[in-house]
Design a protein around this nucleic acid. Structure first.
Lengths: 262, 262
DNA sequence: TAGTGGTCTAGACCACTGG
DNA sequence: CAGTGGTCTAGACCACTAA
């Protein structure tokens, strides 16, 4: 007979989930071992299978277990994975000023990787298209950023787009070539602004600047764009917020829809 | 009779979800409007209620709809919300070097907010406990960071803890007082390192440095700690990775109070 | 082939919301 | 109060995995 804690107001599946959670935390089901089968849990708790599944679904979201058809439910962690998460509603928020500033393109050239001012991935002889630009806030005279953007030659055509100056380059590449930036890696460091850049930024050479190196990785694990920007110390500050979270990563998109027509 | 697309291998609920998704994207169900009731969807698609619920659960995860008991299912967005997410497995990863460095405490004092070198929240007469320290990589002679940590007086006792030097302060506060950093706000900027700090860091005064200001917010929306660190430009670099994600934020912990429904 | 989780149905009662 | 989504049951078939 199922012994239910008396006077439960909360859903049954939640109670079951908690029992299982503490059993896992307590070492009753060690990491790597299998949870009892769903049928077993049904009789053990005296509930229906859906209730059991709803309970294990919670554990699944917390990253405690994983389910495998034909195999069973495996314990993955003994304790709920805690972490801090930064969420950016729009990809543009990565570069925090995109919407409040305008870009003035300086020039566009081609270089080989080894000639670039920044480390580029892959073959040193690989050619890249380089765009150099300044960013201004509204009508301010002084730019807040000097930027250099490298894209692979096969995407170089973006430099001919007409909204080249109003849209982030990575976004242009995405739109024109149907790819998607899956991952963005960012490095933030301080530097003494070199003379040639300082002139453009209208600051004293050697004065402190915040430099950000950003690498955009597409679906095929290829780095299709590298952006490098330098900001005078007193004109820009990078801010971010991290929130405590418990669940495992986003479940992400459902499927490989048959209608990926594009 | 339900007209099912013939020869379906994929789950029914997924098909239903896709139909609903494109109906929403197509404007058939505008943002702010209500989806048909579950019962209606059952007859419309010729499926059981669980199948409908599983389908709307997918839309829920994608942030397209929200469900409200006694009310219905409301359309929240017309298109799947895309965003970039940074995940830190351990809270320590916020300060990326915690595990590879040792801290040397310089001194501990008390100050009023208005006397502090950095802006502190709340009353300018509010007292704060201040710890000043240096961080070293392994056996290197030169520190990679000069740090100042402010905590509220009620948590000042952490400065007496014995593992004060090996554990991050915010973590000590959490452990000793049973609170939890729910949110961490971070500001990264460049500065010319002032003379007094430069001496400690063994760099030339005025040389460029990366400074990071971190505010730790506890459950009660209170800022219980503010940490400020300065790094010589060539000794430290802040790196992060952002991943493309689709689902809405993690639902997280089990018990959510019946509040915050719009 | 036996046993697992994945999907699906039909029906039921409940908790909550709004008029 | 009627109608909504939230929970739960009992039973069924399927897809997958491993022996």
């Amino acid at each position: 007979m199922p012994l239910r804690v008396f006077e439960e107001k909360r859903p049954l599946y939640q109670t079951v989930a908690e029992q299982l959670t503490s059993a896992i935390e307590g070492g009753r089901y060690p990491v790597g071992s299998m949870l009892p089968t769903e049928a077993a849990l049904c009789t053990q708790f005296g509930v229906s299978r859906q209730t059991v599944r709803e309970a294990t679904r919670l554990l699944l979201q917390l990253g405690l277990v994983s389910r495998h058809q034909g195999v069973g439910t495996r314990v993955e962690r003994s304790t709920v994975a805690e972490h801090y998460v930064q969420r950016l509603a729009s990809p543009n928020d990565i570069t925090q000023y995109v919407n409040e500033t305008r870009r003035k393109m300086l020039h566009v050239t081609d270089v080989r990787a080894r000639q670039a001012k920044i480390p580029l991935p892959g073959d040193p002889e690989q050619r890249w298209r380089v765009m150099e630009a300044l960013r201004f806030v509204a009508d301010e005279k002084h730019p807040i950023a000097w930027t250099q953007i490298y894209v692979l030659p096969k995407y170089a055509a973006v430099t001919d787009e007409k909204d080249r100056d109003s849209v982030p380059i990575y976004s242009l590449v995405e739109r024109c070539f149907g790819i998607k930036a899956l991952v963005v890696r960012q490095e933030i460091s301080a530097t003494a602004i070199p003379a040639n850049i300082a002139t453009q930024l209208r600051v004293i050479p050697g004065s402190p600047g915040l430099s950000i190196l950003r690498r955009y990785l597409s679906t095929q694990d290829e780095i299709f764009e590298v952006a490098f920007s330098v900001h005078p110390a007193d004109r820009y500050k990078y801010t971010m917020q991290l929130d405590l979270a418990y669940s495992t990563g986003p479940v992400g998109l459902s499927s490989e829809a048959p209608g990926a027509q594009r």
